[in-house]
Design a protein around this nucleic acid. Sequence first.
RNA 1: GGGUGUUUAGCUCAGCUGGCUAGAGCGCUUCCUUCACACGGAAGAGGUCGGGGGUUCGAGUCCCUCAACACCCACCA
Length: 783
Amino acid sequence: MAYENNNKYAAELYAKQEAEGYFTADPKSTKEHFCMMLPPPNITGSLHVGHAASFMRQDVIARYQRMKGKDVLWLPGTDHAAMPVQMLVEKKLAAEGINFRTLGREGFLKHVWEWIELYGGEIRAQLRRMGFSLDWSREAFTMSPHCNSAVIHAFKKMYEDGLIYRATRMVNWDPAMQTSVSDLEVINSEEAGTFWHIAYPVEDSVEKIVVATTRPETMLGDTAVAVNPDDERYKHLIGKFVILPLVGRRIPIVADAYADMTKGTGAVKITPAHDFNDYEVGKRHNLDEIQVINKLGKICGGFVPALEGLDRFAARAEILKMLTAEGSLVKEAPCTHTVPRAERGNTILEPMITPQWFCDVSKLAAESVAKARSGELKFVPEVWVNTWYSWLENIQPWCISRQIWWGHRVPVYYDAAGKVAYVGDNPPAGLIQDEDSLDTWFSSGLWPLETLGWPDENAVDFKTYFPNQFLGTAHDIIFFWVARMVMMSIYFTGKLPFDTVMLNGMIVDEAGQKMSKTKGNVISPMNLVDEFGIDAVRFAICAACNQNRVNPFGVSNVENARKFLTKLLNGISFWEMKGVASSVGGRYTSCSPACCWILDRMDKMIADADKAMLLSELRFDEYAQNIYHFVWDDFCSTFIEAAKKDMSQTTVEVARFVIGNILKVLQPVAPFIAAELWQKLGFGNDVDLIREGFAEIADLNSIEEEVAEKFALDLEIAAAKAKAEGDKAAAAKELAEIAARIESLNKQLADKLFVSRAKPEVIEARKRSLAEMVERQAALLKV
RNA sequence: GGGUGUUUAGCUCAGCUGGCUAGAGCGCUUCCUUCACACGGAAGAGGUCGGGGGUUCGAGUCCCUCAACACCCACCA
């Protein structure tokens, strides 16, 4: 009998359980409440193996906590994912020959909603296929009318409190998407580039000052050359002026510590409008900020008519040609430098001074740090707390506005004069709304609040389930999401949104490589489910989820899990033949040594399962491996073999008792096969296993424990004897090993320092070990 | 430049507050269609726990140091 793909059965059971409210939380329940939020995946996305692994861990927790007698709310939902969805729909329209801007905001959004209508169902169907025990009756969406009103409420409050403000500052600008992006969305990539040395003639002098740059196109906006005040080479030039080549602008030579004497030529061109550092230098020296690259990434300002309107990179080439022609380009050298690229779309970003909305989170960040320092906010694994501190302690204002259409629109309204006239919901007529939309993470940051009915603080769900007990998510969004939720919760409620955060590692392929489409090593969890069956995939994922930053995973993991399920089915089928389905089942006090032993092992297995599921531990790999080894090694290899030699009705009933507990421990990981067996063996209806109490230990008395220990030792001795009888050479080898071991134990026990300093239990253990060795030696010598 | 993590069998990894002969899965070798299971069973090979130093009766485990790899943050002339 082999484990076969049980997806059809799984789908039916899941549908039944969903329909009958088995996953639905009950605020009225007298049970302890346990709430966690599903990190909302992109509404138009599909389930990748990273989702599967992260959500799988959460499902194991949800199912385990339910069995432990809690009222569990695991709340599902999806995220509107502003930037990716905007890009997708823009692209789709472009393929149809439509420039999305010609549609206008409302027209474009209509297409977005149609797109969501078309593709929004996939991820939800996949979450169901994975068997995740989510409370679908409470499903949320970050762009729902309710979430929109929560966002507006939040914005208004933060605006009125002065945390949100509009300012014209330098931000990272994506010329392709034509929007600002936040610092976190910038990917710094090391790339090969060129250092160009350009000579700027000093006014009224034959001297020239040579500056080095990787971005010559920005020279059109230069308003100074900076040198280090201590730089002997340039000291005499400070306060003088240079004439900017090509442009003819007269710009000062300023002294600023920013100029690094060891870098380039020691003199640096200053373009305050297109470089973050230069922007700061410009502020210090009151320099003009001259914009020479527009929002489309094209040259503007009209300083060199031949370049006007050229793309920034085409302009670079032109400028180099012109500089060469006039002899100003004195040197070029290859170099590697860091290029800021957009996380979405990979466009090279352009620093740009634009008006944007900012959120000042410095105070909230400090409180978030304090909550972690005090231990109120816990991380699993703990190491992440350091990352938490280092980011939050150096936090910068968060640019929350985006110049795209899909997303929550900034709820600020202006009068005809362009002054802010209203902020919030239901604006009076005749005002003009701000064109910007909000960073997706602004609404995601409210997720644990808005999904429970907030801002209505009297909503039943909010009162019952907030704060949540737990959050599990991938570690790469600790800043984007976790930090924002914590800060927003602290701000609006004074409470943490949850007290334990599990940051899981990333699933990589079996060679440890990040999965990517370009590498072609992506594996689809849904394909695996189709091929191997849902329970095998679930078990495999659970067993692969260790606490490392990366979790290698591949088809072989699933094959292995499938073998295990087959082993389990076969082990149970043995007992079915012995009539286990019609037996009573129970924990018998007077049973065979093998029974005592299996109950003892079972107790350890259950205790280990409970330990692995502590919220401070969360060792999913150990949870799965624990079941694996108990079933395979203890229950099948040892217990069944022993029972074959000494079968009785009592043994069958102990077996039934053990099987019942195996199914309970298995339920969180492989719920469908567990439920099917539960019903087949007559324990109850399959739908109900999820509601059973978790496995409980048999709790052997000391006499039973001794019997169990003796059984284990006898097994070992019997195996050694059997081997010795068959193979004299092996017997001799084993005897030699035992003798050596006995000698070393004797030596240690004779060591006065050891005996005086070692802990008594260690000495006891050594003595016991010695006695066992002597017993084994005696047994072998008799052969 | 700052930080974090990793380094244990051919591969992927367990080894918690130091304590019995360092483990698992896969792979490998030999044998076995034994009546639950070949998605199986039995036996076996394979490790100076990254290098060096230290603390200790005792170190894979603690401390120092060096090295390699990975990732994060900052820099971005």
